[in-house]
Nucleic acid binder design. Sequence first.
DNA 1: ATTCTGACAAGTA
DNA 2: CTACTTGCCAGAA
Length: 132
Amino acid sequence: MKNRRANLSFMTKSQGAATTQSKGQKTALSEWQTNEQRIYSALAAIPAGKVATYGQIAELAALPRAARLVGQVLSKLPDDTQLPWHRVINAAGKISLSEDSPSFKVQKKRLQDEGIDVINNRINLKQFQWHG
DNA sequence: ATTCTGACAAGTA
DNA sequence: CTACTTGCCAGAA
């Protein structure tokens, strides 16, 4: 993890969807949704017994190619969340968590409990990927 | 304001 | 399959 990027001064500011706006406000009418909010919605839509990739969730949240943001959001979820974070795996068909982390085992177990085969740390996307 | 760093992805070699 | 590059977004330095 050394010098990955060098110059990105040319990058235009967020043109994707919602730019960061002062949070904590309750504009009664114009309800802006943070990117994080849309990710929660997309996440909640994944049916049991199916999985989705980070990129897929990002796209559903109107954030094409922002898969990393999805990972960042999931990492912040409280332990008691109701959202099916365990149904999100990477495009390679594998769980992105460290096999050592406690969460890895939780995710694997939950998937198996839903009938998803996790063979050799891999999941067959052709068979279990959700097509929403 | 600028630079780094991720539970990532897709393209190229 | 591995290695490297570029794209995206947000939070931390």
